[in-house]
Design a protein around this nucleic acid. Structure first.
Lengths: 111, 111
DNA sequence: ACTATATTTCTATATTATTAGAAATATGGA
DNA sequence: TCCATATTTCTAATAATATAGAAATATAGT
């Protein structure tokens, strides 16, 4: 991963509204959620929401598909996991005794 | 984790110099690296470096200990992993078939 | 006390991001 | 074609962040 790709993704997540949006979409799953529902659930005006969705989309963290008049947004799990892998790359020079706490998209019941 | 804690950590990582600094420290391990070495390796003026180190420190992503005149900075692996867990929390409503790609601090050779 | 080293704090300037109302665009039904 | 719904783009005001030189602080050796 290019460092600018990672900075763009992290910048996209480094904002309260956008982090809420992203976590909502991570919870909702691959089918996606209409933009309007996101704004309603989080109490964000639609023009502001649209700005934040485009930031997340531009960073590759979310996907968008149209179904009639409705745009469904969904989390891009692959790019999320690539970002996390980038952060932990080569940790402890390959000797992770002191830091190994694997995380990822794993359901609560299996933890 | 509080959302503001996560936003602070993500904001700290969402900057090219700071992301380079953090990834360097993740690689170097728990013993830590003197501030001067970081600036030298990354070509960052010391006053600028100090500003960025304080942002990362304030976000809880790195630790600092003094040894004589030298300040050793090191990655805080626990808070890094907590941040990643926060991003993936409750993914896919507990049905991660479409997104399960666990990541974390695991050495290359074991991947 | 003096000097050298390691690092931080202060400062001002320059750059970038956030907000939400109003207008514009896209789609589909009558 | 006309209207309703869903969402985006435009706009301008406001706020926050990054930069690096110079001065200040902390530590240790002579």
């Amino acid at each position: 991963m290019e460092i600018l790709t990672a900075v763009t993704a992290l910048s996209a997540l480094a904002q309260e509204h956008r982090l809420e949006i992203f976590r909502l979409l991570v919870r909702e799953g691959v089918h996606g959620t209409p933009a309007g529902h996101i704004g309603e659930k989080l109490g964000i005006p639609l023009s502001t929401l649209s700005f934040h969705l485009s930031q997340l989309k531009n960073a590759g963290l979310i996907n968008c598909r149209r179904e009639s008049r409705t745009l469904f947004y969904s989390a891009n799990y692959l790019s999320m996991n690539e970002l996390m892998a980038y952060l932990t790359e080569n940790c402890c020079e390959g000797n992770p005794d002191s830091c190994e706490i694997p995380v990822g998209c794993v359901p609560e019941k299996e933890k």
